[in-house]
Write a protein that binds this DNA or RNA. Structure first.
Lengths: 167, 167
DNA sequence: TCTATCTAGTTCAACATTCAAGAAAAGGTC
DNA sequence: GACCTTTTCTTGAATGTTGAACTAGATAGA
């Protein structure tokens, strides 16, 4: 059963189906694995950890809420809840934005930074063990290109502008 | 090939970091995209849709709960809640297992099958458009191999038994 | 200025997920 | 059979996510 190029619904080829299953399978297991690793070692889910990482890399360890949400690929609503929780943990605090009274900065606290420094090595180990230690250098390069392409195609804005051959 | 950290923390190379970011980025966007597509067109999240697909492919459209959970890579608890919801929608029903009185079969109803048949073409389109339409045949093959390796490495138990070359 | 519109961020309610605890049946051993 | 362990599945509470509605401040045009 392969694709029919004319008329009715087009299905995936056998190979595509198998690749899709492997993709779902691997990404599900990976996310579960890292969520558990971080819940155990850092007391928060993977995405929350990612927020702290973003802040730690930002100038002065702070970022506007909307920008942080955009960079972390989550909604502003979800970010509001997440920051509220991280604030309760003492790892982040909110700060009013001087230039725009509507705005808030999320700021990584010293405690937050320490926590990150403590848990980063374990997390990096987990990532390397689950992914990079198992792939050849060629596969790593390949994976990078493939993920770039996929991400570009799903980007909210004007992404198709970069991919005219899909029109 | 196992990694044992010798001495201080080992970090990722610049290339690995970039690949990892692209991976997170792409997989997050993909999952969000499909979740929204299916919520809109089928009234349920991606994982629930996957459960119905599994049932549709099983003999007599039914499967033991534990087996279904294993195949879908979710906990039994999560599956219990999910099936309860799908049951409320009329797409699945539970049935006692004749051979094991502890057991339950999840059974795809006719309504469930119809719903699946209705929404499958759109979902396949979404997958193809987001992934396969953007990759070369070589990249598709590559992605398949890479995801197999990653999944195998994260498989709960004894998965490595099938993959001696990873030891 | 007055008004309409847009943007930043939060809140609420409905829903989904997790983890720990539990009930019930099956299996193993004496 | 009696006992202990394991397996199967469910439940409930705590937590996280979603989408829509909302407030307050910014912006643009007459």
């Amino acid at each position: 059963m392969t694709t029919t190029s004319t008329g009715g619904p087009r299905w995936l080829t056998d190979e595509e189906q198998s690749v899709w299953r492997a993709y779902l399978h691997a990404t599900t297991l990976m996310e579960d694995h890292l969520d558990r690793q971080l819940q155990r070692d850092a007391g928060m889910p993977h995405i929350y950890y990612g927020l702290l990482v973003q802040l730690s890399q930002a100038p002065r360890h702070r970022k506007r809420m909307t920008e942080l949400a955009k960079d972390a690929k989550i909604t502003r609503s979800r970010l509001s809840h997440a920051v509220a929780r991280l604030e309760k943990n003492g790892w982040v605090r909110r700060e009013e934005c001087p230039s725009d009274k509507r705005g808030q900065n999320a700021v990584l606290t010293d405690d937050g930074y320490e926590m990150l420094a403590r848990s980063a090595p374990g997390h990096v180990d987990a990532v390397r063990h689950a992914m990079f230690a198992r792939l050849t250098p060629g596969q790593v390069a390949s994976l990078g290109e493939i993920m770039q392409v996929i991400a570009a195609g799903l980007q909210p804005e004007g992404a198709d502008a970069d991919l005219p051959w899909l029109r």
